[in-house]
Design a protein around this nucleic acid. Structure first.
Lengths: 222, 222
DNA sequence: GCCAACCTGACATGTACCTGACATGTACCT
DNA sequence: AGGTACATGTCAGGTACATGTCAGGTTGGC
């Protein structure tokens, strides 16, 4: 997939871009509306990530023009938490979703996937294996029919793992995905979440395996 | 579901369309009667949203022709509050419902759902679970046989929740559904409604669960 | 046996949330 | 118009819970 990222904060932009690249997407990056317009006119994108506050104008103006030009590329707005009213206005202008900063990368990825899936006409997002049912969008997990209340971080962690079962994630990688770019936590925090998540999964056939010095992996069958 | 939106105010049209798209519907948009006629002749729609005042004529004329052509696609009229008499005439012409501007998106969605359900033969619009009976269209809730007077906002909130029980709604998402595009309220407002709604539900087996940092969820069984 | 990596119960902390009370506006009645 | 009643959103103070850290225990590798 090819994404266009319109964001003037370079640090944040790099953080997003590198994460997306890890997922195998191609990212092009514009720092202002002028560049963004040029990009859109010359290239095809599957998704646009748009900041509201930009040095040469309001992102919503760009969005409005974009939609007026009959382009239906999905747009996800990146907005600061304080700009609450922006949010509402943005949806009205034709944005497909919005994410408030600071955000978890996992959340951004989830929303990107959801929007792309919606555009593709598919709607099912639910995982159903090894005695569990998990809907990351609704935020619902049930183990052996019993509903489990995952806390925010546990949920995000589980989503990362179940999206790539049998893959090894280092603690560093998990931390990058769970914490937004301005948060900072020790690696021990990850160990704690893994422990808490394991408890929830005990009745199921899913198991988180520790690979010493390498990381964690989600496995089927106890 | 595929909807046709006939509305000449672009800002409003975009607002409606984007909300509907988030719900997973496909929206096509005509700005005048000529385009609308072309759309209807070439496509199948599950629902038509029709503005009365259009640049090239009266929406009711379109409605009349549409019904004369033996097409039974449900039609919901969008009308300004001042045009009260219009409303009455529209129902006689075969509209299935009407919504007066300005309207909450939640209200529009509710009426869309209601009309679609009615057309699908499931004339049941009434929820009956866990000791409550709820008719969202009439706006009547009774808990354990006792009639409860829900206020407008409480009603809308309850409708959102009961339409997707066990699903988690963030405060932002609820706010977006409860407030129309030009309103703006703090997230605390949502907390207050949740609290008020909870009080009403105490005698029933329905319960609103708080998921810290994530949102709220309607659960069955106290 | 020793060190490092990992696990885990318990706790401090901030923050998300709750709630009673109030200010404001809107609808309805006369 | 004027008044009353009610719905609605804000605020402040209090509470409870998610979260990350720590310390001491456990495991695994060498």
């Amino acid at each position: 997939m090819k994404f266009l990222l319109i964001e003037d904060n370079r640090e944040l932009a790099h953080a997003i871009a590198s994460r997306m690249r890890i997922d195998g997407h191609v990212i092009e990056h514009a720092e202002n509306l002028e560049d963004a317009t040029a990009f859109v006119e010359t290239g095809e994108y599957d998704l646009i990530l748009l900041d509201i506050m930009l040095p040469d104008g309001d992102g919503r103006v760009f969005l409005k023009k974009h939609r007026a030009g009959n382009l239906d590329t999905p747009v996800i707005i990146l907005t600061a938490r304080s700009q609450v009213s922006d949010r509402i206005g943005s949806l009205d202008l034709g944005a497909d979703d919005y994410v408030t900063k600071p955000f978890d990368h996992a959340e951004l990825e989830a929303r990107c996937r959801a929007v792309l899936r919606r555009k593709a006409g598919k709607s099912q997002t639910i995982f159903e294996t090894g005695g569990i049912v998990f809907d990351p969008v609704a935020g619902v997990l049930s183990v052996r029919g019993e509903n489990v209340n995952l806390r925010n971080r546990e949920l995000r962690l589980f989503e990362v793992l179940i999206n790539a079962p049998r893959q090894v994630f280092s603690k560093q990688k998990l931390a990058d995905r769970l914490f937004s770019y301005d948060e900072d936590a020790s690696e021990n925090a990850i160990e704690v979440y893994i422990g808490r998540l394991r408890k929830h999964l005990i009745p199921s056939d899913l198991k988180i395996t520790t690979l010493r010095g390498m990381g964690y992996r989600l496995d089927y069958e106890g």
